[in-house]
Nucleic acid binder design. Structure first.
Lengths: 147, 147
DNA sequence: TATTATCATTTTACTAGTCAATTGATAATA
DNA sequence: TATTATCAATTGACTAGTAAAATGATAATA
């Protein structure tokens, strides 16, 4: 009945902050011709290439279907290539993808960090990290119908 | 270059927690035949009905186009009605929508809260609320190219 | 060799959202 | 009265995702 519990208030602010952050990242990454979702996928590929689609889906917590579609778009723009070996497709960046990412990564990491650094001091960030880490871990174990 | 700054770590955990929470809410709300997105829209309508689409978009921080599409789906399922008055459409819940929501709201609020209550104590929740409130407020003022 | 199993990837049909252009209803002006 | 302006709502073309069924490639068994 009472919807204004502390937990509800936290949830609202957190969800809105994440939404707003994503929106700002999308705007920021426009200069590199990337969306935030594409950036995440490409950055993950760069750090793990060559990597299979299933591994990629796992690391990004997306479904295989979602990854498949995303890679089709990225392939169309010549940012990645898929090489089939055995029954598995290995993904890596093209030169174009690599070049763009080398510029985009430090910029985006700095931009993302500024969202926190401009507002919180070191102690607050450590506090916040401890809290969200706890929440995230618990959420991975939580199920809808326990038992 | 160093992607493992504290800020990056916070961002990752927070984004993943929000994603996971949404997934769990979707599973939880299945028993009411609703998705989390639909629940949010319907709950907002219930608390403000009758409300215009523009106001609704504003409260939910969605675009008018997005709201229009969502309401079309909800209307098709007989959960809401749009009544045109002057050049504005006023949205309200149908009896069916109202009945479902009266059950779903307390359950979903409790479920959502459990995500926090099972992990954090009162003091931690107050701390967390203060931090995310700060972050959220700052993000609303932040722009990509300052100046 | 033919059949079955395995498991990565893709596809189908959908929800949910964006931005930008268009439409609809009404008011204000020429 | 005809034209223009205003502004809510819708639509078109897209990205990004899901769950579940289908496909493809290879291995293992009958």
């Amino acid at each position: 009945m009472d919807r204004n519990t502390l937990s509800s208030l936290i949830w609202l602010r957190m969800a809105r902050f994440v939404q707003r952050s994503n929106h700002l990242s999308n705007e920021f990454l426009e200069q590199y011709g990337l969306t935030a979702a594409q950036f995440d996928v490409l950055a993950q590929i760069q750090h793990n290439q060559p990597i299979t689609q299933t591994e990629l889906a796992d690391k990004l917590t997306l479904t295989c279907g979602g990854i498949s579609r995303m890679l089709t778009r990225l392939e169309k723009e010549n940012l990645i290539i898929r090489k089939q070996q055995w029954k598995i497709k290995y993904i890596s960046l093209t030169d174009k993808g690599s070049t763009i990412l080398n510029e985009a990564i430090p910029a985006q990491v700095a931009f993302q960090a500024s969202m926190f650094d401009e507002v919180l001091d070191e102690a607050e960030k450590k506090q916040l990290y401890a809290l969200v880490k706890k929440l995230h871990k618990a959420s991975l174990e939580k199920t809808v119908s326990p038992k």
